[in-house]
Design a protein around this nucleic acid. Structure first.
Length: 509
RNA sequence: GCUCCGGUGGUGUAGUCCGGCCAAUCAUAUUGCCCUCUCGAGGCGAUGACCUGGGUUCGAAUCCCAGCCGGAGCACCA
């Protein structure tokens, strides 16, 4: 009995048991651990990308996990662009939209979209309150000087300024009266804290370079991540934060601000970094960006680039990425994501609905042309082997065929041209020897794919390992951009372009 | 140097809080056979892991200590 048949049978006998099984399966399907202190309907999370470029695959993890938790808890999530550094992590104006697109591609939609660069006044207001509470001071120490004092556990002379002076100097910061490096606003924590990373950290600093967004171009006094993010998380009602281990100390830093304001800190979960196999290109926004600039990569969607846009163009479903990412769990140690896991998920998603076709690669030995003697004038192959009702592909053979050189049998030997029949390789052609499939089982005749030598369509296949050109069966001309096909014995592809040149992107085997 | 984390098969993960039901789960990977006119799908099987050493205990992947290994922070980056 097949799986389907068993289900149908069970449905007749004990429908309630079938429901139970489905419920269990759904539960088992979910790899993510429970969120601490989470209540159904009350969970609010955020993804907080820096829009300094389109996303690489690693970025997808945050959206995948946050989006999945949202669904799991019937909660909500915010996409907040933490674009508070116009200089070293300069925002890319296109990236805001590209990131939102990436989230949508993964199958999620933020309940709210915010840009930190729109919210400077809010941060200033809170800084003023913090100053009133004695929790911050302006400091003109150089970075090196302060670092030295800090490491020795000693306060700098500015720490005891009176509130009034601090307010004045902070106002001057906001008004842009200092240049970069001249003045910062520090959050007063514990200068002797045993962890040097937590001692009196910088909340605001001056940046001379204008922000690329017109709306924010006039600001010169910018909050640091720990201040901005800490304030925003509270103000936007975030209940659960997920972030990388590189931000392990952030919660502890921000806790000082939360204490001054008597706020309750959200639950925090840290996770390790993700590394991905199968790519020669490092997963780093700046590196990919450089490679594109140098012409090493064609763009963010180059199949060799470990980016979201690349996977999308190759025809990977966002859902497959989400599944692979949630399967990684929430461990604090670094993890390696095997692309094969993404591919396995994707294959499961698309195999059933994807039409089959032949594609002969013009590789190393090249495609080999052979004329045919005997046999039917057209071959007939199912569009999908598991669904005969979808019909067949009729492929003409009168002009001979093309096979991959690897598939060409030695002279005198036979090979089975799929959908056509068995042929023997003579000096210069294939002689039809029959259509009894038993030879493939009993006499070890290989079954191979082929295309007509005359009527075929040239196609360039772009793969993570470079481009491959070749010839597809004529029916492939009936497919347009975004259609998926499985080139039998080659792999799944997504048709990308059909105008001047026919191009497909290789998905996976 | 100071301060935090973490170490289960090739990869990811369950189990660790509350020790026994764990000669350790599931997925992926690799692989064998069956089926199939694909190297896809499907079916059945195989491979392969508790970092090390002590301790506590009748019993430790699980608790304690030490070591080793790995990661992270100590930025006027995010």
């Amino acid at each position: 009995m097949s799986h389907e048949q068993r289900r149908e049978r069970l449905d007749e006998l004990a429908p309630e048991r079938l429901e139970e099984i489905d419920a269990e399966e759904e539960e088992d399907d979910q790899a993510l651990p429970d969120l601490p202190n989470a209540e159904e309907g009350e969970v609010r999370m955020r993804v907080a990308p820096n829009p300094n470029g389109p996303w690489h695959i690693g970025h997808a993890r945050m959206a995948a996990v946050v989006g999945t938790y949202k669904e799991l808890y019937d909660g909500s999530f915010i996409c907040r662009f933490d674009d508070t550094d116009p200089e070293t992590k300069r925002p890319d104006l296109d990236a805001y939209e590209q990131i939102l697109d990436a989230i949508e591609y993964l199958g999620f939609e933020p309940d709210e979209v915010l840009k930190a660069s729109d919210r400077l006044e809010t941060y200033y207001d809170h800084a003023r309150d913090l100053i009133d509470a004695g929790g911050a001071y302006t400091c003109s120490c150089s970075g090196d000087d302060f670092s030295e004092l800090k490491n020795a556990g000693e306060a700098c002379p500015h720490r005891d300024k009176d509130t009034e002076t601090v307010h004045e100097e902070f106002t001057e910061m906001i008004e842009g009266e200092y240049s970069s490096g001249e003045m910062v606003l520090r959050v007063k924590t514990d200068i002797e804290h045993k962890n040097p990373a937590l001692r009196d950290w910088v909340g605001f600093r001056m940046i001379d370079t204008p922000h690329p967004r017109e709306e924010a171009a006039e600001y010169r006094c910018w909050p640091m991540l720990d201040f901005q993010s800490g304030v925003d998380d509270h103000l936007t009602g975030v209940t659960h934060i997920i972030r990388g281990i590189d931000l392990q100390d952030s919660a502890k830093r921000q806790q000082f601000v939360y204490d001054y304001f008597d706020w309750e800190y959200p639950e925090v979960i840290h996770w390790g970094h993700v590394e991905i196999d199968e790519y020669d290109v490092p997963m780093s926004t700046s590196t990919i960006s450089e490679l594109i600039e140098d012409g090493e990569l064609d763009g963010w969607d180059d199949p060799r680039a470990p980016t979201i846009e690349s996977l999308r163009r190759r025809g990977i479903r966002g859902e497959a990425i989400v599944e692979a990412m949630t399967e990684l769990g929430m461990s604090t140690s670094n993890v390696d994501l095997a692309m094969s896991s993404v591919y396995a998920n994707n294959r499961e998603l698309i195999d059933d609905e994807t039409d089959r076709a032949f594609f002969v690669r013009e590789e190393d030995g090249g495609a080999v042309e052979k004329s045919l003697s005997g046999g039917p004038a057209t071959a007939s192959v199912p569009i999908h082997p598991d669904h005969e009702d979808r019909g067949t592909r009729e492929i003409p053979t009168d002009d001979g065929v093309l096979v991959e050189s690897d598939d060409l049998p030695p002279t005198g030997e036979r090979v089975w041209l799929k959908g056509f029949g068995c042929v023997r390789h003579t000096e210069d052609r294939f002689e039809y020897t029959g259509d009894d499939l038993d030879v493939t089982r009993e006499e070890d005749v290989d079954i191979v794919h082929w295309v007509p030598a005359g009527e075929n369509v040239s196609l360039r296949l772009r793969t993570p390992d470079g481009d491959v050109s070749g010839y597809a069966e004529p029916g492939v001309s009936g497919y347009g951009p975004d259609d998926r096909l499985q080139f039998e014995r080659v792999g799944f592809v997504r048709i990308d372009a059909v105008d001047e040149e026919r191009v497909a992107y290789y998905t996976h085997s």
